[in-house]
Each structure stands twice: as structure tokens, then as C-alpha cells.
Design a protein around this nucleic acid. Structure first.
Lengths: 211, 211, 211, 211
DNA sequence: TGCTAACCGAGACGGTACGTCCTGTCTTCCC
DNA sequence: GGGAAGACAGGACGTACCGTCTCGGTTAGCA
């Protein structure tokens, strides 16, 4: 081992002030507004204090977004016994939350950071979406146990679909509406294939389309 | 009115040279490397010639990416009569194509441009994904007519799911593999809900949890 | 030949504004106060416009001081026929002028610039002292023609003595007073050696000490 | 009063190491190279140890230069009975010594320190030139006693002339040569005025111009 | 022997200037 | 009028240094 902690230790206060300043600037002015100089000034910190901790602007943004996202968690899906309804409400909530300018700014900031550097963006998104993912997969698993969902569904793929959709709306700024949520969920629940086509095809039986 | 074309007409050669230079720089150095000065220099053009045509860097990038994407089109899904297999092959192909460094660079460039300006990013992505979208929805419609797909599927939502997934992989740089394609398609075809649930949902009934 | 003047020519206005701003800052705040950024701001100019013309701060200072000095010329020594008196008045005037805070600041600035770069400082000082030098040597030559000064005096050496003295006072900030001027001039006119010694020096002969 | 020395005493070793490090850096890299951090690092000392002893960089430089100068003293002028020759040799030696890169660096460092702070530069130069001054004035006084020099010469003014000349050469880096020394000494010994002029001016006589 | 004060090396801190780079505009001469 | 060239104001970048502050640890006198 080494270096046994010599010299003045790095200030945790400064660390937090920087991340918060970065988030504030990101929220109110976007990625371009969020200058290293502005961050330092707003955090009441020298520029070198930023560069001592992070090698570049992208890295600061990445950590700022991640740490900020985690404190602004949304509640997990309820478990009323009706998985479709629970997911529907949860997804609507997620979409609504994602539509908040602050959150959009965080997503765009993180995306910009991911693009203009060699940050491991996939890892970042995993961190970012991690908690929501877990909430989702938990509820899906419960739905399986409750006999409402197919036991063979690929939880990760479902989570990826949601993540991709959210990224799309975050980047484009196109708001994700409640009907969007419903349509997406409907597709994922029902699937595209006719039942006849999928697992065991009950011969001749045509499910009645919505009247 | 409209001054019917006075003075020297704008050079189409310069126009193309600029877009190509932009794409080249984007492909080899990323969005940050692609400066307006570098584009102008590489295209053998004055900077003013860029700004006479596009109002900002983002706009140049946008058009460069879009025009570049279009010339590198992928073929539409086949129609062998088996819609699941046709889509599987097409999606794999799309994913593979998307994994090419050049294409990734274009996607990332477009995303960066979308973020740091007030470009209508949604419109851009529509342009970008438009052709693929059309190919997809055409094949899906055919599948419906062939009695292999549900007649009530929401084509746009399906297309959005694909677009979101591709954006995710483009931005993170995480390669989208053939198994990913298969899993995604499987989910979308089959859906998550058990057949029993879709048809009749016994309200309030709690299935026995696993013992 | 080459380059036949393409592109926008450099602005002479900006050039002058920069030099003047540099001199102003030097005069009111010293060498340390005179930042490149402050110069640019005061001149209403981008920093790049400075660096396009001069490679470093020292170079800007050098030119600013030189051009400023030249416009603030002092009058040449009079020629009343009495060279001693003419020089006495001129030297007093020079000393007084040198004591002005503005001039001291210029001298110190130039000296600082000379020290912290590889500027050819000797050349700068020559430029700086050139006009005064010429005035001095002209008057000395006239004095020689008028039979008041020795024909074999080394004009350059005399000028160097004055220059060195002025540099000393400029750097230290110790004001050069009128009595200082008189003493220096007295020394230079009269010399240190006794007349007996100057005329004929009998080798090996020990002169009788003063009785 | 006066807290009679409690706590750990200051390290004399560190003191010397600092001054030596400062001189070394000054000698090999100039004033700009000589940063407080570099001095501390080279002396194997914490920065606070510097600031505990000196209030600023200029102060460190000043003491470093002075202490360095004193240990590198040049011998005093000889007293062979011939004051002109003694001074000539001594001045040549001084000029040669001054031309050494190390000495030039010290002079430039001291000058830079004098400029960018409110150090009493005159006092520093007095310290710096003090020993040489004393040597010089001693020899001049002896010359006066020996009847070779005028009894009314102003010793301080002579010393100032030498100091100014040396400062000029130190700052500009222009080497002071042996002929320079001879010329300067010739001027100071002989003076500029014709003997006739100093004592009694023959009235109305116009000297013939050079043929 | 322990207490307390001042030192020590190390290095982070706020601040500020540096010199480079890029954006979007402008100004020149050439077609 | 368009086009290539390049200067323009402005401003962010990342580096470096100044002088201060804060760690853990050392070295003295005093108790």
C-alpha cells in the first residue's frame, strides 16, 4: 500500500458544492452554459480544485448528474395485484418526471458528456437507470409470481426498452405523454403476434378484436 | 418579388464538399474534433461559405449526418411470408450496421448537435430514422394482412421502440448484438402478459405465491 | 515575393488601442497589474488580437513602452555657447522627467519585460534612449567644435554613463535630484585625475604629495 | 515580553537549503523559472517553511541574491601606486565577473524582485554593491592622498556611475568588455572639458574647427 | 514523563493570469 | 453578388503559480 494520507485532505464540502453547482447550472442553462469556470465560481472554489478531482468537464458532469439523480428518486411501482395497472401508473409517472425541465437537462447533460469524451457511457446509464430498473424488474418478477406475466420474459430487455424510450425523449425534448406510456405498455404486454402464432396455437380460435 | 437570382449562384460543389468534410471529421475525430474551421479548411472553403448556408455548427452537423445517412441506406426487410424471421434478419442487420464506427459517429454527432442547440431534434431523428421506419411499418402491415400479426398493433410505437434502442446503443457505444436483436424481437412479438390475462382478468384474485 | 495581402488586413486602430491600453495600465498599476486580459479588455479587443501580433506579454510591453516613450520626447539641450551650463540644464530636465511616476513605470515595465524573456534588451534600451543619446552627442560634438570640450572624448561612453544612471534611478525608484545631476556632470566634465597627471605622465615617477 | 523561544526552533539547514535552491534555479532558469514551489521542492522543504521566513517571493529572491553575491566576492583593487592602472585592472575584473551567466542571473533576479514588489530596491542595491563600493572608494581616497587624484572628487558619484553601468550590462545581458572598462575609466579620469576651460576661459577666442 | 508550542514536509485551497482554441461576424481582394 | 482568406470580439479551456490553510508528525522547553 502507499501514500498514507499526507498533506491536507481534500475538502468534502468543496466536492459537494461543485456537484451541486454543476447540477444547478445544468438545470438552468443547459450543457453549454455549464462552464468549468461558472461551476467553480458558483461553488466558491478555485478551478484547480475541479481539475484536481476530475480530468475534464465531461467527468464532472457525469458525476454531478449521477449523484443528483439518485437523490431525486421516484417511488417504485405499487403492487395492487394488477400488474398492468401498476406498471401503467408507474410508467406514466416516470414519463411525467422525465418531462420536468430539470430532469431533461440532466439527461441531456449526461448524454453530451458521454459523447464528447471517452467516458464509459453505458456504465453511466446503468448507474443512472439502475434504481428504476430494479424497481421495474422487481415488479415484473412479482407479476410473474402472481401468474399475470409469462415466466419466460427477459427482464433486462424490457428495462432496456424503457431506458431507450426515455433517452429518446430526454434527448429530443419531445415530451413523453401519458398516452405514449399506455401505448408502449400495451405493446409490451400484448405483443405483436397473434396468439395463434406464438406458443401453443389453439386451433381455429380467433380472439375477438376490440369491438 | 424575390430578386430572381442576382449575382453568382452558390456553388453546389462547395456545398457537397462541406457536408463530406463534416462527415469525415465526425467519423475520424468525433464531434469535438469537428470544428467549423476544420470543416472549412478540409472542404477548401471559406468559413463564410458555411455560415452563408447554415446558421450554426449544429445545423451543419445535422444536415451532414442526415445526408450521409441516406446514402448509406440498408435494404428493407424481406417478405418470405414468415414475418418473425424476416424482422429478425432485418433487425440483426440494422444492429450490425449501427455498430460500424462511422455510423456510431454520425449518431453521436447528431445527438450532440441536438443537445447543444435548439434544433428540433425530434424532426431530425424522424428524418434520420424515416426510411427505416417506413420499411419496418410496411413489413409489419404486410404481416398483419398475412394474418401473422395482430391487426391492432401500434406501428409507430413499435418503430419508436426500435429507434430508442438504436439511439441508446449509438450514444453509449455499447454494441448491439444479434442476440440483443433476437431478445428484443421476441419480447415485442410475444408480449409479457400471459394469454389468460389478456383475455379475461379475474379481478381481485390473488394467485398463491410460490411456496 | 509572396502572400500578396489576402484576407482582412490587421486593424491599425486595434494596434494603437492595445499599445495605449498597455501604457495606461503600466502607468497606473505597474508591471504586475498589466495583464494581457486587462490590456485586451481596456483596448476593447479580443485576447487573440494581442497574440496575433506579439508572441508574449514581454513583447507587448516592449513595444508599448518604446512607442509611448517616443511620443513623450523631451527637448534637446540648448546651445547657448556654454556647454557646461547647457548640459547641466538638460540633465536636470532629464532627471526630473525621469522622476515622473509615468516614466518610472515605463522604465520598470521595460526592464521587467527585458528580464523575463529573451528579448534583446540592449536593442530595446538603444531604441528607448536613442533620441536622448542623439541629442546629447550632438551637443557634445558642438561643444568640441566650440573648443570647450576635449576632441578625444568618447561620446558613446558618456551617453552610456547617463543611460546607466537613469536606469538605476528608474529601477530603484530613488528619485534623481538636481544636485545629483550637477555632481554627475561635474565629475564628467572635470574628471578625477589631477591636471598634472593627464598632460604628461612621467613613467615611474612618484609625484610629490600635496605639500 | 518576547516569548523567549518556545517550541521547535527553525531549521538553519532549511534556511540555507532554500537560499541555495533559489540561487540555483535563478542561475539555470532565470527569474520566471524560479517559482516558490520549485524552490521548496528543490530544497526539500514545505512551502510554508518559505513563507514562515519571508513574506513574498521577492523577499526570498532578494536575500538569496544578496547572500549569494557576498560569498562570491571579488578582490579589492591593488595599490601599486598607480591609481589609473589599479582601477583599470579592478574594473576589468569587475566587468568580467559581471559577465558570468551566474552573476547576470543574480542581478536580473534582484532587479525583477525590485520591480514587482515594494521592496526598497535602493537599499538592496546598496547591500549588493556595498562591498565593491567600499573597495573602490578606499582606493580612490588613497589616490587622492597619493596626489594622483583631485581632492574634490565626489566618491559616491563615481561609485554610482560604476553601479549604473553594471546594472545596465546585467539587465541587458550585453557583455561589458575590457575596452568598455578602459573607455569608461579614461572618461572618468580625464573628464570631458578642456583644461583651459575648467580653469580660465580665454575671452573671445574662437578655436579653429577641425580642418 | 508528560504537556504544550512551534516547527516540519506535504499538499489542497481560493484566486488569478497565462496562452490556445473555437464560434460566429466582419472586411479585404478576386471572380 | 458569391468565394477564399483571414482578422475581429468574445469567451471557455486546461495549466501554472501565488500565498494561505490544514493535515499528521517532530523537536524543543517547561512542568
Amino acid at each position: 500500500m502507499a501514500a498514507k494520507q499526507r498533506g491536507r485532505p481534500r475538502s468534502a464540502v468543496a466536492h459537494q458544492a461543485i456537484l451541486e453547482a454543476a447540477r444547478d447550472l445544468l438545470a438552468c442553462g443547459g450543457y453549454e452554459q455549464m462552464t468549468m469556470e461558472a461551476i467553480a465560481a458558483r461553488a466558491g472554489v478555485g478551478k484547480q480544485t475541479l481539475y484536481r478531482r476530475w480530468p475534464s468537464k465531461s467527468a464532472v458532469v457525469a458525476e454531478a448528474v449521477l449523484s443528483g439523480y439518485l437523490v431525486a428518486e421516484t417511488p417504485p411501482p405499487a403492487d395492487s395485484g394488477d400488474v398492468a395497472e401498476d406498471l401503467r401508473l408507474w410508467l406514466r409517472q416516470q414519463f411525467e418526471w422525465l418531462g420536468a425541465p430539470t430532469v431533461t437537462a440532466l439527461v441531456r447533460g449526461l448524454t453530451a458528456a458521454a459523447i464528447d469524451s471517452d467516458i464509459d457511457a453505458a456504465r453511466l446509464y446503468d448507474h443512472l437507470t439502475g434504481p428504476g430498473r430494479q424497481q421495474l424488474t422487481d415488479r415484473l418478477s412479482a407479476g410473474v409470481r402472481q401468474g399475470q406475466l409469462r415466466p419466460d420474459i427477459d427482464l433486462e430487455t424490457v428495462a432496456d426498452v424503457f431506458a431507450g424510450t426515455m433517452l429518446y425523449h430526454g434527448v429530443t425534448g419531445a415530451p413523453a405523454t401519458a398516452p405514449d406510456a399506455d401505448r408502449l405498455l400495451g405493446l409490451l404486454l400484448t405483443g405483436m403476434a397473434l396468439p395463434a402464432n406464438t406458443a401453443s396455437k389453439p386451433p381455429g380460435e380467433e380472439p375477438a378484436p376490440s369491438p
